[in-house]
Design a protein around this nucleic acid. Structure first.
Length: 347
DNA sequence: GTCCAGGTCC
DNA sequence: GGACCTGGAC
């Protein structure tokens, strides 16, 4: 079927000549590998680079991270998304600072925030274990290399993918092989139209030889996100604006403006603020914004309300412009935050 | 604007 | 199986 030894030899030679120069490459320090792999979950390498550099500068080792406040970790994560990654990274730092890093895939798998992919990535890169790190890139490359035409989410198919991956792990360079497969998936064996004419594996690739590598892998259809109307209230008093720290799972512990979920009109927003115990003047419309999550779309209408007094509200905080810059605030609030800074600067 | 990609937890 | 976020390509 597939000549594994030829794939390994060609791909490692290609990697040695063409590997991406990334700041988290060239280290086997398990802390650095761990931080980078958590950031790389669901996130492209180019996006991760500046976050990784700031994070390592502030938290150079696991002890530094373990001693931090969660809020500071979230602030450094601001804009990267999937904030439970940051919360679990911080939590897990406490465990690792006590016990040290597990050195096996199974041991790593027991830590919060480390799933099958990340356990294999750390085990192979930091500890030289022959574990294939099956992420989206590996899935695509393997599905094409082995011409897997079934839905790769079916458990039996996923297990087969893992076995194929294991067969491609050279005993001497498993970490490099994983990173070579990832780089191939990120640069040539891309979704859509792969650049097979430049690929070191095309001659060996079953999908290429069958003719339709661009149709693989077969993934289930994604569900469209559900639209949620939302009124966003920028409630100011003198040089401060009201922020609320979220207790919900979505954007947990991050700060947002007063949100009225389900309604986007001014009257609903005003009712919501009254319910919080606030006395406000009539709201001024500030335009709209949209933010897409995996499972929902916030369709936001923004309003400015002037409060008669800075009444304290549950989980609320009256923030100055300076605090607005210093607190962890999600990208969903980007437009609203700009508006808030503009309003506060006019005072 | 629209489409798409991308791991872990519960 | 659903919840969880954002940015890049087009």
């Amino acid at each position: 079927m597939l000549n594994e030894n030829a794939v390994i030899a060609r791909l490692l030679a290609w990697y040695d000549a063409h590997k991406r120069d990334l700041p988290f490459r060239g280290t086997r320090d398990p802390y650095r590998v761990w931080v980078s792999e958590i950031m790389l979950q669901q996130t492209r390498a180019q996006t991760v680079i500046p976050y990784y550099q700031r994070f390592l500068q502030r938290f150079p080792d696991v002890q530094a991270l373990a001693q931090a406040q969660e809020e500071e970790v979230l602030k450094l994560w601001e804009g990267l998304g999937y904030y439970s990654r940051a919360r679990m990274l911080h939590k897990t730092a406490g465990i690792v600072a006590q016990n040290g890093f597990p050195t096996t895939e199974q041991g790593l798998r027991e830590l919060p925030g480390i799933g099958p992919y990340t356990a294999a990535a750390i085990a192979s890169i930091a500890f030289g274990q022959p574990a294939p790190a099956i992420d989206g890139n590996l899935t695509r490359v393997l599905a094409r290399l082995y011409h897997i035409e079934e839905n790769v989410r079916i458990p039996s198919v996923a297990r087969q993918l893992r076995r194929y991956g294991e067969n491609l792990m050279p005993p001497d360079r498993p970490g490099d092989m994983n990173q070579a497969l990832m780089d191939l998936g990120a640069t040539l064996c891309v979704p859509g139209t792969p650049e097979c004419d430049q690929c070191p594996l095309s001659q060996l690739c079953v999908a290429f030889n069958e003719g339709e590598p661009e149709t693989l892998p077969v993934l289930p259809d994604a569900r469209p996100p559900r639209p949620i109307p939302m009124a966003v209230a920028l409630v100011t008093h003198r040089d401060q604006v009201l922020l609320i720290q979220r207790r919900e799972k979505l954007l947990h512990n991050l700060y947002v403006f007063a949100l009225c979920e389900g309604q986007d009109d001014e009257a609903s927003a005003a009712r919501h603020l009254k319910h919080l115990g606030l006395s406000v003047q009539a709201g001024q419309p500030l335009g709209s914004a949209r933010h897409v999550f995996t499972h929902r779309v916030w369709q936001m209408e923004l309003y400015h309300f002037e409060a008669d007094a800075p009444i304290s509200v549950p989980h609320g905080l009256w923030a100055t412009a300076q605090q607005l810059q210093a607190l962890p605030i999600p990208t969903a609030m980007k437009v609203a935050r700009q508006q808030a800074l503009h309003i506060l600067s006019d005072k």
